[in-house]
Design a protein around this nucleic acid. Structure first.
Lengths: 228, 228
DNA sequence: CGCGGGTGTGGAGCGTTCGTGAAGGCCGCG
DNA sequence: CGCGGCCTTCACGAACGCTCCACACCCGCG
């Protein structure tokens, strides 16, 4: 269950928010001034913070800044006046959403839900290729080998993706050319060798002893298949 | 002029509310039990409903649920008992506000006004995009990078928003054109380059070493992804 | 063990893609 | 009707990376 920290100096606002948020299935903790907010943020580790800007003593802006310094917990701003809020809200402190008073509690709940949903982005599984300890993130065009990030060019990425999609399967140079360009692009097949060389240089720990991209003499290349 | 439907089985309450609401410039229709309330809600299409929970026959709760099924007309609950149970129940069915009896008619008017005001503004569709230390306030079309405010044109803003919504993801020029114009607007794809150049000039600390808008050679562009 | 074809590698060449400044055109505003 | 923004388009130079080559090395087979 997600925990929400509600910060406002007006108890009625806090209670209204608490009612609706708890009813929506959240656990709610509250704070009535800035320093209390910072303490609670540390101790209760909320998943999201609803923060009023007009706080006594420590202003909401300062609270937000302080929070941002060592965490990026999502923040939903409650801004008092809608005119003043124009300049301050969100921008200066990196809030994730804001609601202007007077607010509908239903809207608050909706925005809290929306922000939380936005935060969890587990990247669609189908767009991720895993093979051995190498991970390809296709939409981001990124590669990780173990703990290292690897920078590949577009063609190198496509070539590696084609191989890693079916670990163990052997691909001929011609097949790999097809994967890299569209279909039937006539060219020097040994260009593949050059790409493999460059991928190995960036991907392999010891390029002279390739672990991932294996050569199949007289046929082509394959990606290492762990369970075999 | 706005029409308010007042539902209560006690005529004195209805009259009290009617007096004050009409005086405040609303048209008022009334109903004294649940089924009448549903009929009037359909025929008179009120802009807001003031609903007592303790009704004979068809309970206020059931009325509210029935109303919610095919409309989202705002509802202000009049709860007889001041204990918490009614309040929670009211929340359950998505009331927009509640007033506990005995109530001050002035307070009722104030709440009705507040709820209607909220409804008019179709919820300041606040949407904030945060990526790296760049914040976009979409409804206000504002951008802030670190401590600096950045002025962008409409097209530049949309382009940046599209990229920053999914940090790290690589977009082709064609996809970005779609994001900027409607669907499939035919034009020179490299117009995107010009926009990227202009955004960089305003956004980046050193436009020759872009931190935020990264180019992916042969593919397109992406927004920096801090946490990989 | 020797031979031939296949593969690894560094580097050069060159086409493609990108960055940039500037010019043209559209549109809204005064 | 003129002016100023803004988007688009173009041209040119620079950067990038794909291709291709030359040569060394390796493997497999007779």
């Amino acid at each position: 269950m997600k925990t929400i920290l509600v910060v406002d100096d007006e108890p009625k606002i806090v209670e209204l928010a608490r009612d609706y948020l708890e009813h929506a299935g959240f656990a709610v903790v509250s704070a009535f001034d800035g320093s209390e907010a910072l303490t609670r943020a540390r101790t209760d580790a909320p998943d999201l913070i609803v923060l009023d800007l007009g706080l006594p003593k420590l202003d909401g802006l300062d609270v937000a800044r302080a929070l941002r310094r060592d965490s990026n917990v999502p923040i939903v701003i409650l801004s008092g006046r809608s005119d003043e809020s124009d300049k301050l809200v969100g921008l200066e402190l990196g809030a994730d959403d804001y609601v202007t008073k007077p607010f509908s509690p239903k809207e608050l709940v909706a925005r809290v839900r929306a922000v939380l949903r936005r935060m969890e982005r587990p990247a669609p599984a189908s767009d991720i290729i895993r093979a051995s300890d190498v991970t390809l993130d296709v939409p981001r065009m990124r590669v990780r080998a173990g703990e290292r990030d690897v920078e590949l060019t577009a063609t190198e990425f496509q070539l590696l993706a084609a191989l890693a999609r079916e670990p163990g399967r052997v691909f001929t140079r011609s097949q790999l050319l097809d994967a890299v360009h569209g279909v039937a692009f006539e060219s020097y097949e040994r260009a593949i060798d050059a790409h493999v060389k460059n991928i190995r240089r960036k991907l392999e720990r010891d390029p002279r002893e390739p672990q991932y991209l294996q050569t199949v003499h007289g046929v082509g290349y394959r990606f290492r298949d762990d369970d075999r």
